[in-house]
Simulated assay, not measured.
Amino acid sequence: MRKRLPVFSAQYTIGIICEGDEEYDYIEKLKSLNVWNAQYRVMAFNALGNGNIPARYQDKYQNNVCDALFIFCDTDRKPYEQYEEIKAKINNFHGQSDAAENVVIFGNPCTMQIILMHWGQFNLPSHRKDKNAPLIEQCTGIKGYKAKEEQRRQLFSLINRDNYIRMKEYVAQLSQDDRQKNSSNFIKLLNNLHCEDGRWIQEFNEKLEC
């Protein structure tokens, strides 16, 4: 594994490997709100599927593309085999048993658990889009949501600075145990991106190199 160089920049590049279109579009929408500290330049990368995440992560990390690099993905359904495989590969890459605990930002059962918190405090019953569609329609007016491009565009057009604050408050109340349904550690990423002191980046990378 290539060792990362120390960070001495006045502006920091934060990379986020997104599982797919929904995660990528969501991060891009949040970027457009300009709610994060201006010293952070966020770059989202679409892995186009959870099976591609470890390779995309390894490539970006080894090439020092970013000052700090995260993964944003679903836990999906029990027994979370694909999710656990992603974590195992990240741990193996860094030669640590808990590297993924720092790197992986998750939504359980899926990213929609986070997205819907722009409108209220909800517990999704399932990762399945057909099961979640009635609640999505209740919050957004979008009928039969299947994450198609036009539906994603409509969904994320409804996100604004005001309901971003609401989401942040609700997500902070979720369990950060990825084995627990209706959980997420998304607040960790948000708090980092709001932080005025960029020294967290050095500390973050040092944890991965121990």
Rank of each mutant, 00 (worst) to 15 (best):
M117V: 07
F122I: 07
Q96R: 13
K31H: 00
D59W: 12
L135N: 04
H194K: 13
N102Q: 14
N46M: 01
S32P: 11
S175C: 12
L193E: 05
W119L: 06
V103R: 05
E101M: 04
I27T: 08
H127V: 11
I17L: 06
Q39Y: 09
L155F: 08
I115H: 03
L116K: 03
D59C: 11
S175H: 04
F204I: 07
E149P: 14
V65D: 10
N34E: 08
V65P: 07
A88H: 08
C18W: 08
D76I: 03
M117F: 04
F204M: 05
L30D: 04
R199I: 12
N123H: 07
K143H: 03
Q39A: 09
L69G: 01
W36P: 03
N37T: 02
F156L: 02
Y145W: 01
E137A: 14
N205W: 06
C210G: 04
E203A: 11
Q82N: 10
Q154K: 15
S32N: 08
C18E: 13
C66G: 02
T111F: 06
I165D: 11
Q138T: 04
G141V: 01
H94V: 06
L189E: 00
K181N: 15
G95K: 14
C139E: 05
L48K: 11
E150R: 10
T75S: 08
Q121A: 15
D59T: 15
N108V: 09
L69T: 00
K148H: 10
D162E: 10
A55T: 14
N182W: 05
K29E: 10
V7T: 10
R41V: 01
N63L: 12
N185A: 01
P109V: 00
D67N: 05
Q96N: 10
K60R: 15
F122S: 07
K181Y: 12
N123T: 04
R166Y: 05
Q138G: 08
D130H: 13
R166T: 10
G198P: 11
I53P: 09
Y24K: 01
M1W: 11
P6N: 07
H194C: 14
K207P: 09
R199D: 15
P6H: 13
S32V: 05
L124R: 06
R56Q: 07
V35I: 15
P109T: 12
N46W: 08
W119K: 12
A47I: 00
E169C: 06
Y164S: 00
E19K: 04
G51E: 07
M112K: 08
K129G: 09
R199M: 15
I16Q: 01
R4Q: 08
I165P: 13
Q58K: 14
C210H: 03
F122D: 00
M1L: 14
S183W: 14
I17T: 02
E19P: 03
D162F: 13
S183G: 13
K148C: 05
L48R: 14
N123C: 05
L30V: 00
R128C: 11
C195V: 06
E149Q: 14
F204Q: 06
F156P: 00
K168H: 04
S126C: 14
E203I: 06
Q58W: 09
Y12L: 08
G144T: 13
